[in-house]
Design a protein around this nucleic acid. Structure first.
Length: 364
DNA sequence: AACACGTGGCG
DNA sequence: TCGCCAAGTGT
């Protein structure tokens, strides 16, 4: 499959491959070897460590993932330690990185590896794809980087680099267009050494992350410039083509700081909650419009505004206000008093971390 | 197929 | 400030 330039359905491939491509790929790999960033997951051949890095890098920048990667591997150095990890510890280590489902899925995958693969890391694209949290991108990345198998990755970087290279003008959110780009990436990688496909994949991604960036790409120093159709036509800034985004929904949010001595009123989100299960948070309410009575159902009366913050999730944008508040009735269901000194030992939602930070700013 | 999921950096 | 978007996956 890897060297097949036809689609499974027998459709003709969309972009031609030739000896020109081989030269471009060679130039790209030379550039990569010279300019690649020193990153810890590039210094290991341990499939487990490479898997951890690939999961963390999903929709996440290298600079954001870096400290988490180091901490995670120190805390959970192998499959076995991840299987045995306490959920609270896992979430604490992941807290702040985002997409928290990834952490739980990693533990599920670790269990699958321990139980169904006898602890040996799966080493084929198909077996990797079967792991929770591992999709086509991550399976191809691990297969090529850790196991030297010839599978092209398709991520945001590859989409950008290849769509510019061939001047793809179709909407890259469409699956047919993405598949055409993936096939082109595969055929490019197939012009090089099969067991170096991982290096090719990383070279394309590194190019996308550092030179072939969304705005103001550095085409003058790009190793692919001589073969880049979009650059030739001067339309590189207009590739890839994506549909316009819908408008974001503006919402208000109120967060209450209720103190008892040096403790704060907080609740742990239920384990079956869709959004950030198991995380701790201050009492909060969100709606289009909120007044000072908004937390009365919990018996909470707002006293004084302490600070403001903003928070956005997908298409929703929250304007948050933090209030000093007091508890009129008894302890609301699901709530507890948490010692302030304990806050750095439990996983907090980002809204709560932002609220506490906004409050500190005001009180300083 | 279209959405939801988090967060931070950049122009 | 604000929108874009980053080494995607699951539903």
């Amino acid at each position: 499959m890897s060297s097949n330039t036809q689609t499974a359905s027998g459709l003709p491939q969309r972009y031609a491959a030739g000896s020109r491509d081989r030269q471009l790929v060679a130039a790209l790999v030379r550039w990569y070897r010279r300019h690649r960033r020193d990153l810890p997951w590039r210094e290991t051949s341990d499939p487990y460590a490479i898997w951890v890095s690939e999961i963390m890098l999903q929709q996440t920048r290298v600079t954001a993932a870096l400290p988490y990667y180091v901490r995670f591997l120190a805390e959970f150095p192998d499959v076995d330690s991840l299987v045995r990890a306490k959920e609270a510890k896992l979430l604490e280590v992941w807290s702040g990185l985002g997409y928290y489902r990834r952490a739980r899925q990693m533990q599920q995958a670790a269990r699958v590896i321990a139980e169904q693969h006898d602890g040996a890391f799966p080493n084929t694209f198909e077996a990797l794809l079967a792991l929770p949290g591992v999709g086509p991108y991550t399976a191809a990345a691990i297969a090529s980087i850790a196991f030297r198998r010839p599978h092209a990755v398709l991520d945001g970087n590859v989409i950008r680099v290849i769509s510019r290279l061939v001047d793809e003008d179709g909407d890259v959110t469409r699956s047919e267009v993405k598949e055409a780009l993936r096939l082109k990436a595969q055929s490019l990688g197939d012009t090089g050494a099969p067991r170096r496909f991982g290096e090719f994949n990383q070279a394309v991604m590194e190019l996308g992350a550092t030179l072939c960036v969304p705005r103001n790409p550095h085409c003058l120093v790009c190793p692919l410039a001589s073969g880049c159709v979009a650059y030739k036509r001067g339309v590189q800034e207009s590739r890839p083509v994506k549909p316009p985004k819908g408008r974001t929904l503006e919402l208000e949010m109120v967060v209450a700081v209720v103190r008892r001595g040096s403790s704060l009123l907080m609740r742990q989100r239920p384990a079956d909650e869709a959004l950030m299960p198991g995380f701790w948070e201050l009492p909060e309410e969100a709606a289009e419009r909120l007044d000072e009575n908004c937390l009365q159902d919990l018996g909470i009366q707002l006293v004084e505004e302490l600070g403001r913050f903003r928070h956005g999730i997908t298409f929703r944008s929250y304007r948050g206000r933090v209030y000093r508040a007091r508890l009129a009735g008894s302890l609301p269901r699901g709530y507890d008093w948490i010692a302030a000194g304990h806050l750095d030992k439990i996983p907090l939602t980002t809204v709560t971390r932002k609220a506490l930070k906004a409050k500190l700013r005001v009180q300083d």
